[in-house]
């Protein structure tokens, strides 16, 4: 069985304007739309395409989080994942512990590929995939914009500062997705109905022998300093004059 594990994180929806709570304890989440982290949606879409090309047999969607995360896993099943596992934890959990928990599931499921988003759009950490690859002692191909599976190997094109880098990794390996890897499909109503019959297991984080206890203490959240709103100039001449006056051109 050639299996792909993908990670799903429940985050505040991409289109929501995030606001810091007045007491600095976090950001406002009451009544705020929650969604699958966009990079994770891209990971799932890529897994589906790999399976559709005949290079994988099963896709397992995994999430760590509170009970509410079942919503996002149901969406993942509707998109086409074959089964899903929620590792339930009410506590906040950081990348090192997530990587340890994923490693436990990797040991159980023996995937050929693990595809994760390169970062979650809430904490913007960009750590989990690399940490899992290190703990698993397997290759990592981060920031992928193209993935080609060739038997026991994968060729991955990566979005790096210099341009596009292509590397070859032996499988199994961890791949993290960048924005332009694909455009995730929309879920249709019949898919949602069908997904209800798919297996969705819930296990407790503690049952994996992993502690959620965070390493980093969150002291406070603050809104970012606001830039002063500037002025509107009426034409090109006024703009150039203003920039000249400030010695910028």
């Amino acid at each position: 069985m050639r299996r792909i594990l993908i990670g799903i994180k429940r985050v505040i929806d991409y289109n929501v304007r995030v606001r810091v709570r007045p007491d600095g304890s976090g950001v406002v989440t009451d009544g705020v739309k929650m969604s699958i982290n966009p990079f994770d949606e891209i990971a799932l879409e890529e897994a589906l395409r790999i399976k559709e090309r005949g290079a994988a047999d099963e896709i397992v969607a995994i999430s760590l989080g509170p009970e509410d995360t079942l919503q996002q896993l149901r969406t993942a099943l509707a998109m086409g994942a074959d089964r899903a596992i929620l590792v339930r934890t009410a506590a906040a959990i950081e990348a090192p512990a997530i990587a340890r928990a994923l490693l436990k599931l990797v040991e159980r499921e023996s995937p050929t590929i693990v595809i994760l988003g390169k970062q979650a759009i809430d904490d913007d950490c960009n750590q989990t995939g690399q940490m899992l690859a290190a703990l698993w002692n397997r290759p990592q191909a981060t920031f992928a914009s193209k993935i080609e599976i060739d038997g026991e190997k994968a060729r991955v094109t990566r979005e790096v500062d210099a341009g596009l880098e292509t590397i070859e990794v032996d499988l199994p390996a961890v791949i993290t997705t960048d924005l332009r890897l694909n455009e995730p499909r929309y879920v249709k109503l019949p898919d949602i109905m069908r997904a209800k019959k798919k297996p969705l297991d819930v296990i407790e984080l503690a049952s994996l022998g992993v502690e959620a206890a965070p390493d980093l203490k969150v002291l406070k959240f603050e809104p970012p300093p606001q830039r002063q709103k500037g002025i509107l100039v009426k034409d090109a001449a006024e703009l150039v004059a203003a920039l000249r006056h400030k010695g910028l051109v």
């Binding site: 995030v18 606001r19 759009i121 809430d122 969150v218 406070k220 603050e222």
Partner: peptide, 29 residues
């Protein structure tokens, strides 16, 4: 542990970093 994107150092253990696309600045220890 790793602190990503350090934008300010408050002490040897305390750092400020942006989260939520920079919509919030987090202080961690």
């Amino acid at each position: 542990p790793q602190v990503s994107d350090v934008m300010a150092v408050l002490s040897a253990q305390r750092f400020r970093r942006p989260v939520y696309a920079g919509n919030a600045i987090l202080t961690v220890e």
